[in-house]
Amino acid sequence: MSGRIERAFTRARKAKRAAFIPYITAGDPNPERTVVLARALERAGADILELGVPFTDPIADGPTNQRAAERALSRGTTLSGVLGLVRELRYSSELPVVLFTYFNPVHAYGMARFAVDAAAAGVDGVLFTDVPVDEAAVAHEALKRVGIELVLLVAPTSTRARVKAVRRLAGSFVYFIARAGVTGPRTSLEEGLEDQVRLVRKLAKARVVVGFGVSTPEQVTRIAQFADGVVVGSALVERIGELGDVPELPGEVEAIARSFALATRRK
């Protein structure tokens, strides 16, 4: 199951590029569109899909993703609904899926039951935005049993000791937050990002993907030179929000995603 993530990274590296990891919120603009959008992203060159589970109190997200979550929730998207969407995607696609979720919906669902159902649906990895590594052992155990990877966040403020703690629980990659703060577009990248990524890769002994605030193809190209993967979220989500549920939505999203995917080439 998690072999899909591993293969995606290997394929990207062989093609001399960083993995392209687009993010969208499941159920935005409505649940019927999610699978269509996922397929569009795959056609555009996505290596891994990061799928957000909408939550009422998304404290790690900026306004763009907050509004996306509101749109998805207003269409009745729930965690079990998201698992249903992944299952539907699996009829036609082997694109690895990492769920980007807050802890409480999973807590309410029940960790063990969630792990089993997520694996059956075809989820490859789970990232909890609000579970620090100190509290992640239970989730790690439950997910490992069903072959799902736990994806952990590393912040620019994380100490060496914390990054080493991440190593014990991390799967094939860790997610490095490009800049202190919440998700959302930024005009500039942090100084010293490259050194930080190299240090995290060494300490965590895992691949490092970079996200939070990556919003232009130029930024993607810069990051792709030293990171194993790049996550692009708000730039896509913003466009989905602007367009809403129109017939040309998948085509538009595919076009933007392609410009990011092409930017992941290594020089």
């Binding site: 109190d57 965690l79 079990s80 409480n104 309410a108 669902y109």
Partner: peptide, 16 residues
Amino acid sequence: VLHGTRSYVLQDQDGL
């Protein structure tokens, strides 16, 4: 779990 604390929380069956 809300705001980094595990406690009693008013939520629906989906954890929202």
